[in-house]
Write a protein that binds this DNA or RNA. Structure first.
Lengths: 125, 125
DNA sequence: CGGTATCCCGGGAGATACTG
DNA sequence: CAGTATCTCCCGGGATACCG
C-alpha cells in the first residue's frame, strides 16, 4: 500500500478524522500528560510536578478531557487529606505508539527543518 | 523497548520536541494540506478546491509555513495568467507515515471514545 | 490566477484568589 | 491536596475587500 493510498486516511470525509484527533491531542498539554502517565499511577500533584510549566487549571482541564474520552482513569480515595490517582486506560496506552512515532519524526527532522527556516528567513531561498 | 521507555521521547527536555511538532502540524489545516499534496503537484486553486472549507488566507498561510519548514516546494511559472505549483519535498513525504499512523488510531478508536464521552456526559460515570 | 491587507470574534491558556 | 471561579490577554482563523 503506497503512502498515496494511505494518505486518504487523513483526508477521509473532508478530514474529519484528523480534525477530531487533533482537537483531542493537538493542544498544548494533552500529549505531555499522556506520556507522563505512561507508567505507574500518579496523583495530581505528582503529575503537576513532572510537567514543568503546567498550571493547576490547565492540568485539571486536560485530565478531565482525557477522562471524558476514556483515555485516563481517575480514582478518588476517601481520605483526609484527599488523594486522587490518575492512570492511563488500556485505550490510552494505545495512543502512546503513534504519538511516539510522531515525536521520533520531530526529533529526526528538527535539525533539517531549522536549517530550512534559517535559509528561508535569510531570503536566500 | 517498552512504551514506557519510548514515551520519554515525548517528554524529552520538558516536551520541547512534541511542542515543536504540534506547533508545526497541530493546527487546523496543515496535515490536510500535506495529505492533499501526497501525489502529483497541484496548483493553488486545485489545492483549495480539494480542501473543503479552507479560506484563501489560511491556505496561503499554511503553504507558506510548510515551505519555510522545507516540507513543501513552491514553483512559480512566469506565465500569464500566473501558475504556481505546490509539491511535497522528500522530507515532507516522510511526514505522511507517522501522520497516517495517527489517523489510523483516530479511526480505530473513535467509536469507543464517543461512547465514553456519552457515558461521561450522562453522569452515569 | 494567486495572492495581500484589514477587521473582527471566539476560545485557548496564564495568573490569581478562593474552597471542601 | 486537589481542585473551582474569575479575569485577562493573546492569537488562530473566518470574512471581506483589494492588488499585480
Amino acid at each position: 500500500m503506497s503512502t498515496y493510498e494511505r494518505s486518504c486516511k487523513i483526508r477521509g470525509d473532508g478530514g474529519r478524522a484528523i480534525r477530531g484527533i487533533l482537537d483531542r491531542i493537538g493542544d498544548k498539554w494533552t500529549l505531555l500528560v499522556v506520556a507522563t502517565l505512561d507508567g505507574p499511577p500518579l496523583r495530581f500533584s505528582e503529575l503537576q510536578s513532572r510537567i514543568p510549566g503546567i498550571s493547576q487549571r490547565m492540568l485539571t482541564r486536560t485530565v478531565r478531557h482525557l477522562e471524558r474520552d476514556g483515555l485516563v482513569s481517575r480514582t478518588v480515595y476517601a481520605e483526609v487529606p484527599p488523594r486522587v490517582q490518575y492512570e492511563l486506560t488500556a485505550t490510552g496506552r494505545t495512543l502512546i505508539e503513534p504519538a511516539v512515532a510522531l515525536a521520533d519524526w520531530a526529533i529526526d527532522h528538527n535539525p533539517e527543518i531549522e536549517r530550512s527556516q534559517a535559509t528561508y528567513d535569510t531570503g536566500t531561498a
